[in-house]
Design a protein around this nucleic acid. Structure first.
Lengths: 152, 152
DNA sequence: CTTGAAATTAAAGTTTACTTTAAGGTTAGG
DNA sequence: CCTAACCTTAAAGTAAACTTTAATTTCAAG
């Protein structure tokens, strides 16, 4: 599979795929005699995980550390299981982050919809934001809202 | 309230608050005789909403359009609520996909760990990857995974 | 054999979201 | 009164995540 095909299938631009390779997110891939990159189907899964993780707010740097080390094909059963389990843990991390984001958004929606039609925007803001603060943890103990601590 | 105090309370750098003002996310604020910015308590709430929305994946540009027109008063909350709800739906969809992927992975792990120790590693790996492809449904109807359409 | 689509590289450019710097004016404490 | 901490501005700098450009090379069709 050449880069153009992979690009079509994944929906990512070829430049982006090459960029991920330069950045070490995709392991060294095979080259044909002509120097063209030859991808396996596995690469598509990797790209998908990268995109998903990005959508959940992970930086490429974090993703690089989450992805299993792409040492080539000595795939023993144990290593395969270990890699998959690691992936499950990664997915759980993604889910946690998504849940937090979603909970925060829903709280904000609830508050806005609870505002009386003619009312001042921030009349009861204080109370609801306090709720938000109690439920999840968008603030630290000093009372500042934390800048999205990226979770490795 | 001067900028330093607001910065301490919100946890945002003064430069960042001034930046948001330049970008039109915070309305025109009062100035003292000395030219110092004088903030009201409302501004803190606005800053918190900005941070919240950022964590949910909104760009500053999108946020600017969601926030009340700071010329005068009423914030048409319908637009804001609609956008936020749309975002929640997106997040839910993302989470469903993650769940499916995770469930698939766990099933695959269980299968591998149940295989008798005599098996061929590569045969196994092949089957595992096939499972992964079939079980998770990470693609849209064209077969691409969608690149997180940011919603205004 | 020629032509156009697709591949390669290195390097430079873009956007977003800030921060830092430089050069100053203001204010509170000792 | 002096000094340090805080405020002001415009402008330049930075980091992340890509994309675009330019200058080739290669492949596939007619």
């Amino acid at each position: 599979m050449k880069i153009g095909e992979l690009a079509r299938e994944s929906g990512l631009a070829p430049s982006r795929i090459r960029f991920y390779e330069r950045e070490g997110l995709i392991g060294s891939i095979d080259r044909g005699l002509n120097g063209y990159r030859q991808y396996s189907r596995e690469t598509r899964q990797v790209l998908e995980i990268i995109v998903m993780a990005q959508q959940a707010g992970f930086s490429l740097d974090e993703i690089r550390n989450l992805l299993p080390p792409h040492g080539k094909g000595d795939w023993s059963k144990d290593k395969l299981v270990a890699a998959l389990k690691k992936k499950v843990i990664e997915l759980a991390a993604l889910q946690r982050r998504l849940s937090e984001t979603q909970a925060g958004l829903e709280a904000v929606i609830a508050r806005i919809e609870a505002t009386p039609p003619g009312g001042d925007c921030f009349e009861n803001a204080e109370a609801v934001l306090a709720d938000l603060r109690d439920q999840s943890k968008p603030v630290d103990e000093i009372g500042q809202f934390v800048p999205a601590k990226t979770v490795a």
